[in-house]
Design a protein around this nucleic acid. Structure first.
Lengths: 194, 194
DNA sequence: TTCTATATTGAACACACTGTTGATTTTCTT
DNA sequence: AAGAAAATCAACAGTGTGTTCAATATAGAA
């Protein structure tokens, strides 16, 4: 684990590792994947793995961190929009679109053997922004209530997302976003529309 | 893994194993717990572990199955209530009360290193019942919409539950149940009350 | 192109955990 | 008290781990 360069070699190695890893994660939970097995799949030497990562979880977190960065970069412009007209539908749609773009990784992290806690991290990026926004709206709601509200809707969105994935993401992004917003804003009232 | 009786010995052994297991799960994720370590903590022989369980996940699922049974037994009377006046608040409160009663296990399964997917299983017990109930209410909502609704609110409830646990379950059960219901029924409208 | 730094390889190593076995001891049931 | 069943203990081969070293191969700069 010395300092390592951005060599072409290291980039290829890391890519091979990641590909094999996501492939394996599509087949079985992380706890039944061995480093030896991963390296055989990736076609790299076991020692090379240890040069880059300490263990499989280090690798997982590294992948997640990269995805997180992608995600933040993608929704930054949406969040940076003027405060007055924060278009929630657009923001939500942007988020879901970004997730769809990374659907291979999503399937892994949100799938049967995925790292559920990571999904929360993803959603929580918008947390402070949301809370701040809502606390402006609802003067008579306590901060604690808003916290609970966010806990509820963020987890709710993950559930929505999982269902979406489960169905192969056939429903258009905009419709999912509309659903998400409807559910967040009016709860069961969402079912009464039309 | 032969047939095993309900001996006093086996009950004690299993109890020791479970206690040690939940204690360890409070300290680290399951993937970094070894069977050897668990047996040392439990003060039992390693071979004895293998007589009852094949591996740590078998043990985990066994514990979860027991908790699930407890859970079902606890909310059965609430669900069996006459269909006409299904009191959602009471049902929800009952559910959360039951979870509070098993808070030690909840902390483990919902905590940092818990098995998030299990929480979903817990919540999904009420799934069919709920869907059936709602589909009666909202004639013009498609089954798919109802599915998405349930996906959203069930995950939302888990998020609420996690936050509740995080705060040490100091908020009264009834208040959490009211929150859950409010969020499920009116979404953000919940913040506008009072 | 050649040179140098560095990444990867392959082999070997001690170590730890696994899952199983058989003989022995303890404990429960009747 | 006697037989049945469970827990213990020690030992076993098998496998993955994490590290090391010398060797080989490759990238990037002069």
């Amino acid at each position: 684990m010395k300092k390592l360069t951005n060599d072409h070699r290291t980039r290829v190695t890391k890519m091979l590792i990641r590909k094999a890893f996501t492939r394996l994660l599509g087949q079985k939970p992380i706890q039944s994947i061995s480093i030896k097995e991963l390296c055989e799949q990736a076609g790299i030497n076991r020692g090379t793995f240890y040069r880059h990562y300490t263990d499989l979880f280090d690798l997982l977190h590294s992948i997640e961190a990269d995805m997180l960065a992608d995600f933040e970069r993608a929704i930054a412009p949406l969040i940076a929009a003027p405060d007055s007209n924060v278009n929630l539908v657009k923001l939500t749609a942007g988020v879901f679109q970004c997730l769809k773009d990374n659907s291979d990784l999503c399937t892994v992290t949100l799938g049967d053997w995925g790292d559920k806690s990571f999904a929360l991290k993803l959603i929580n990026i918008g947390r402070e922004k949301c809370i701040e926004c809502y606390s402006g709206y609802f003067k008579n709601a306590s901060p604690q209530q808003i916290e609970y509200y966010y806990a509820f809707v963020s987890s709710g969105c993950i559930g929505l997302l999982e269902k979406w994935l489960e169905e192969g993401m056939v429903t258009p992004v905009e419709e999912i976003a509309r659903m998400a917003e409807g559910l967040m804003l009016t709860g069961v009232g969402f079912l009464q529309k039309e």
